[in-house]
Write a protein that binds this DNA or RNA. Sequence first.
DNA 1: CTGAAAGCGCTTACAG
DNA 2: CTGAAAGCGCTTACAG
Lengths: 334, 334
Amino acid sequence: MKRVSLDMIAKEVKLSKTTVSMVLNGKGDLHKINPDTQALILSVAKRLNFRPNMIARNLSTGSSMTLALIVPRITDTYYGLIAESIEQISLKLGYQVLLGTTHEDPVKEKELLLTFEAQQVDGILIASTQHNLEDIKAISNAGLPIVLFDRHYPGEDLPYVVVDNYNGAKKLVKHLIETGRKNIGYVGLNLDLTAIKDRQRGFRNAIEESKRDSQNLKIVDHQNAKLDCHKAVEELISDHGVDGIVFETHYLALYGIARIREMGVDYPDTISIVSFGDHEVFSIFRPEVTALVQPVEQIAENAIDMLMKQIQNKPNSLLKSQEVVEPSMEIRNT
Amino acid sequence: MKRVSLDMIAKEVKLSKTTVSMVLNGKGDLHKINPDTQALILSVAKRLNFRPNMIARNLSTGSSMTLALIVPRITDTYYGLIAESIEQISLKLGYQVLLGTTHEDPVKEKELLLTFEAQQVDGILIASTQHNLEDIKAISNAGLPIVLFDRHYPGEDLPYVVVDNYNGAKKLVKHLIETGRKNIGYVGLNLDLTAIKDRQRGFRNAIEESKRDSQNLKIVDHQNAKLDCHKAVEELISDHGVDGIVFETHYLALYGIARIREMGVDYPDTISIVSFGDHEVFSIFRPEVTALVQPVEQIAENAIDMLMKQIQNKPNSLLKSQEVVEPSMEIRNT
DNA sequence: CTGAAAGCGCTTACAG
DNA sequence: CTGAAAGCGCTTACAG
């Protein structure tokens, strides 16, 4: 039971592959193929259940109609949502998406980059570890469209779409202040990522602007986030007497809430908390957790837009663009 | 800046494409190519930064070295974990993975199936909607390796690996009984999936075997799961006076816990809960939630194993196998 | 309106 | 030890 090819159809209808190919690609009218023979070809293709070999087509056209998506981990809610959005949009545009996860390992990231390039993907969407500038530039220079999202390389001339981490953090602080909190703490990670640094800077500046003490900033080890976060929360509450905490990521908030509950602190009355980044359980928890939500769909759409522009202007007019989108507050009970 | 091809290397070293190809594929020794010329070719390939066009290779070899993974949604923790496992294992085996999500829509699933087939994937891993038997059989009969996981078509001769839903549900009931619960309730979904039906059957039988009332089974609408689940929990507690609840999925458990908290029930003392399926927050919550965990890695490994066996025995010896794996209890505080 | 032919960039059976 | 040539299944410029 061999797969049916263009050739077999051509033989069946006693016409050339050329004609069959044109008709099947919807270019029948363009080439003024007789409507009757078009109908014939179409019906035979259908009867034989013809499905073109995309590999062959791709080799011929030089486009694989596939995109690569590289993220740190797909189990992170945020990247999961991004992946889903990207997959949906891509499919509508006729592209397949290849998935790769780096687990924050630059070596793995590099491998993925090279494999996808060899695989002839038409474009790459990547939330980079920020430790692969060379390879990413090489790929971009080689004419393979690439757009960074979530993480970018500041100062570099590569297209990206990221969230406004600095202002996002400020918004969170402002929200706490507006709801009457006086002494605000922050729990963040020791990750060398622009996004992370920006959030911390946003917090510091917001606190300074409000003429408060900004010493309530705790940095925890990302390798040991759960325990360290518990400790940070304890210190903030017991030693610094904070009445509000900003968590730098959704999972830090998760850990923090658990510890606050264990401590038996009157929550959310005595202490308010907010999270940079949403999580499905935040609206399930009682009380619901106030969070800054990243506009996942907008990010996905814009990133793909940028990629498509590059793909269409191939091969060398690397029409670059860089975009910063604003996250929005989802005010809930905490 | 054109990509460098086999031909360019061949010209550079003044040898044939054949020789270059053989050496670059590590078959130099096999074909007794002179070690010196091998070294030469390798060095030139490296210098020119040669990366073979996989599309061309794939067309020639008839294998695309890519697998397709189809799941209902990638944002579901469980499928996220599965995807991550599969991606890791595949990469080790040299395969890329294409991702597709159905959102439980059989039409979307069918489209994905056809696209991936046209894309010449070497194999398909699918958690089906269970409404596409025809297409799946057609694909399998056409010689394209496929293995079902998580969801299967009972009675059909297709390879699959699923979890033991029936016994899993029984285990959960037994756990509650062993911890002294007398009146056990169940909250499940109105989904027409074998996995779901099996869990409900497991619950009923376990209750019967323990000579208890089995009328405490509530089925909620999956379209309106959150609200319906809240209502079900209220009824079970207020009207039926249950002191233990089995939730059919992790998200039902999430909804249920929220409602129990709101109701101010003394939890986990007055009422115990357990979840079929784990969730990252269950070990973060205070109290931690006892859950039945599905052996994600085992599922991923076995599924890929089955797929590889089919791929290697191509084209028609569809060495089929079917496997049921046991979930394990993760006993925590609830 | 339709077809013969070249080409996409590889692999591989065959020959020497 | 190495190469000429056919082939994978499409697309497309060119010709008529």
